[in-house]
Design a protein around this nucleic acid. Structure first.
Lengths: 243, 243
DNA sequence: CGACATCTTGAGAGACCTCAATGATGGTGG
DNA sequence: CCACCATCATTGAGGTCTCTCAAGATGTCG
């Protein structure tokens, strides 16, 4: 048991939450904070490598990630596991379960690091989406962006070299942190092991290690102490598009 | 210009349409046929290899496929093209554009064969979804299934061998035709070239050809005259799950 | 300081690709 | 009805990208 998991957490004020401000409802948070708080249930703390949602089960609630990284994965009958996307602070998850609350989701969600999540009552959340235009827009937008990112991931894995796939992943992380204002000197917290990176790119950890080594040597990225700095985003984009 | 594209087409009666009966609104079609017909615009006929929706443009309408096959693809800056899913008769497309009508979709859609589509007015369609529970359920269900299929595809391409990926694709085609009652002696129309299959599996056409040859030799599939018969679905499933 | 996860590196193998040539097939036009 | 053409399927030889399977190094946390 991770000691950081223990103990109850005071329900934080959504108005004060950096993750909330950067996320789905950042723009309408001030105005609708009471609505958002009205469906919040509680805060969950988890250590690294913990199950959040089990594959093929229904999601019990909607969650927003306050701290840490999560990932969506799908386990195959042959035992191998593919990571389909990473989740960073400010992201809301199991949003697509609003479409069909009773349908089990075909992927699971786990923590990549220590994490803190706020849970929200789905049926209340759902009612808000149906009734409040301020609520509906961001929800639909998030869903559309999510679908777009899945298409992009399929194309990346299917058509790019190992270097290209990894570069695309790193670029995505960079841009998402940039959009949210999480970038410090082009760097950000990166609690993702090379093994997880490999499972996301459809590669082996040994090969990922060699490629990252090359990017470090070339001075394109810096990666140490669970922190990633993109030193040359231009060069990284070139690598992401090469054959 | 394909001669089968020429000439106007009489607006078919949705009640009589085999594709409609098997699709999204099959179950509620009789009851709500007037609603469905109320947003239909016209019928489009296209030859093979024609553009339906260009990548990064907005979808002008909602479409239901009456005849033929289409595919969704994403073209990358390096020139390569990945097929993310195939569309068969009865499928409705650009459904996700209801979420964000003004957002360009990050993938294009093309015909794989001669095809016939019915187009529907999106804003009317959208209103029906908002107002009629019979309309909303199937829509949400289709969207959830679509998201699930994208996850599955990522895992297939990332974690399966070439044989496994192809087997999974063929199994998916088989099951979708089965659900709709399109199977005749375990076979169905299959107007998909090996090159398209390769672009969907993230392989080269030469290698796809060798794998299909092997499956034919083993008596697992029969493929000729644009028709595919799954002779041994059990064996195919085994291949789909092997390392 | 010990235990454990993660990173790093090597050698060898194999799955899949590239490039190119040859054969089918079916639609089109004379 | 036949010749032609475009598209698609098939096959070969050779190369390489990425994997497999270790073993060791480094780092992290209790």
């Amino acid at each position: 048991m991770n000691k950081r998991e223990a103990g109850p957490v005071l329900l934080p004020d959504c108005r004060q939450c950096a993750a909330g401000r950067s996320g789905l409802y950042g723009l309408v948070l001030q105005k609708n904070c009471d609505l958002i708080q009205s469906c919040r249930r509680d805060v969950v703390r988890l250590g690294p490598n913990r199950m959040v949602i089990r594959q093929d089960q229904q999601a019990p609630a909607i969650y927003t990630l306050r701290r840490g990284w999560l990932y969506r994965y799908r386990r195959l009958a042959n035992g191998r596991q593919q990571i389909t996307s990473f989740i960073i602070p400010g992201d809301t998850i199991t949003l697509s379960s609003i479409l069909m609350p009773d349908m089990p989701i075909g992927h699971g969600i786990k923590t990549a690091s220590d994490a803190e999540l706020c849970s929200f009552d789905r049926s209340v959340y759902r009612r808000h989406i149906a009734q409040h235009p301020d609520f509906q827009g961001p929800y639909q937008r998030a869903l559309a962006l999510y679908i777009g990112s899945l298409h992009r991931r399929i194309a990346d894995i299917g058509q790019r070299s190992a270097r290209g796939r990894l570069a695309q992943l790193l670029i995505e992380f960079f841009e998402r942190h940039q959009e949210r204002g999480f970038l410090v000197d082009n760097g950000f917290d990166f609690p993702v092991s090379q093994e997880l990176l490999a499972k996301a790119a459809g590669l082996t950890k040994a090969y990922v290690n060699r490629i990252l080594g090359g990017l470090k040597l070339a001075g394109i990225i810096e990666l140490e102490k669970r922190r990633l700095r993109i030193a040359d985003i231009g060069r990284l984009r070139e690598i992401g598009e090469e054959e």
